[in-house]
Amino acid sequence: MRSLFAVAMLSGAFSLLSALLFVTLDAVDVAFTEAAVGAGISTVLMLGTMALTARFERHASHSPALPLFVVTLTGAAIIYGTLDMPNFGDPAAPVHQHVAPEYFERSPHEIGVPNVVTGILASYRGYDTMGETAVVFSAGVGVMLLLSGLRRRKRKGDPDEDTQNKGGKA
């Protein structure tokens, strides 16, 4: 597919479908985050990038044999690794035995929020969320540093080109 616009739209549709998959897997919080962030913001960012760069891909001329080989090898290694995994939906799987029951038991009277995911995210694992905001902040600073002089430099170079800029903050 040569049109990058179609690529961006398809990746948005993919995100929306994966959000539906998350709903069926009982992860409603993840589903609406994915729908808002994956299908919404990242599509907008991609369209903004296309407006600033190029709309079509040039034809690539190299053999896909080596990438296919690398990908097949990696995939085979990962599938070999999954052979030790418990069955899908198994209540006796190790992941359900360790801390999850404790969170279920403690969060109603320690946090008092009906949504256990919110309770863990904002309280028990609050430091993770703080680290996450630090990551988002530094990414925002990075985007602003990369794009800050863009409009000025463009005007100096070729004044005819379109000078629309995007606010890169996520």
Binding site: A27, V99, Y103
Partner: peptide, 11 residues
């Protein structure tokens, strides 16, 4: 269902 992977993936 187990909420821990959900929290991890939200982040």
């Amino acid at each position: 269902s187990n909420p821990l992977p959900h929290v991890l993936i939200l982040t």
